[in-house]
Design a protein around this nucleic acid. Structure first.
Length: 291
DNA sequence: AGCCAAGCGCCTTCGTTTAC
DNA sequence: GTAAACGAAGGCGCTTGGCT
């Protein structure tokens, strides 16, 4: 650090100590967030982000894919961060000017570019868990573009954590990261996965990292409950309890958490079926979630 | 734009109260 | 006994927030 940087760092420290100001640090590439203890077992995760031509899984295409491997220990601490890999891809369709405004990517920048499928599949296949912010958006694009890894377990950093409960407001990636005291230029896939890694490594007052809480949520299997052949007069009770009507398959269904399965079965058998017929409980693991 | 979940406001409906 | 009026409750649709 030279003398000018040193003076700036000092100024930032002073400003940050003032109650009326807050200092935010630019995210910088890192190789680890925690010291790896020797001989401690660890697992591999992959942070992923896609930029696309739009929001429609069926009609739109990936224009940028970024993945970054990381190694984490049993306490959800990121002890090693791999090299980020980023590919652009020509969507072979016109690019909405709004997408260029959002991502900075132009048709010229994408022309003749393509994802290195073998390399991308290799990285994703090595993951024990794939992490994305709003996985329900990214996963369908990735599953379709790289079907070889379509069955991997995914976890969503946006939806699977009760952010309010852990002291945050809102769920937008940049906003969450900002509340940890960091800033970055978003909507570029490579920056977004770095931001995600910073967020995952963030320590909460109770000593746990965001990643630890997220993994804990993700590992709990949840259930999809199909109230098949429920009597017609149970319609109102099912709706009141949060069930939704599947018009194509013609039954009421809802998703529930792990601990709720027994109570739900009892309620269904007594208040809906009354001795005739029974519901179908389908376990949902991280491999099926967010599809 | 597309999708999904949650929240909110408004309107309808129903029931109870009150006034004649 | 009847009609109007008010209040609680439920349902529906609009809005909002996430992702590009």
């Amino acid at each position: 650090m030279n003398a000018v940087d040193d003076r700036h760092a000092h100024a930032a420290e002073l400003l940050g100590a003032h109650p009326d100001f807050r200092v935010q640090r630019r995210l910088m590439p890192v190789t680890a967030f925690h010291e790896a203890a020797p001989l401690v077992p660890s697992r591999i995760g992959v942070a992923i982000d896609v930029e696309t031509t739009g929001l429609n899984h069926d009609a739109d295409r990936i224009i940028e894919l970024a993945v970054q491997r990381f190694r984490f220990d049993a306490r959800g601490r990121i002890i090693q961060v791999g090299t980020p890999r980023v590919w652009r891809e020509d969507p072979a369709m016109p690019l909405d000017p709004r997408i260029t405004m959002l991502t900075g990517l132009t048709e010229e920048a994408l022309a003749d570019q393509a994802i290195d499928e073998a390399a991308a599949v290799d990285i994703l296949a090595s993951a024990e868990i794939i992490v994305a912010h709003n996985a329900a958006f990214d996963r369908p694009f990735v599953d379709r573009r790289l079907p070889a890894v379509a069955g991997k377990p995914w976890v969503c950093s946006m939806a699977e954590l009760d952010w309010l409960e852990v002291g945050f407001e809102g769920r937008a990636l940049a906003h969450l990261v900002s509340q940890c005291g960091w800033f970055y230029e978003g909507h570029r896939a490579e920056n977004d996965i770095l931001a995600l890694l910073y967020l995952l490594s963030h320590g909460l007052p109770d000593g746990e990292t965001i990643l630890a809480k997220l993994i804990a949520c993700s590992e709990q299997p949840t259930w999809r409950v199909n109230a098949v052949d429920a009597p017609f007069d149970a319609k109102g009770r099912l709706k009141a309890r949060g069930y939704r009507w599947d018009a194509a398959l013609r039954f009421w269904w809802k998703s529930i958490g792990q601990g709720e399965a027994d109570a739900e079965r009892i309620w269904l058998l007594t208040d809906v079926y009354g001795g005739y017929g029974e519901p179908v409980f389908i376990p949902v693991t991280a491999c099926e979630r967010h599809r």
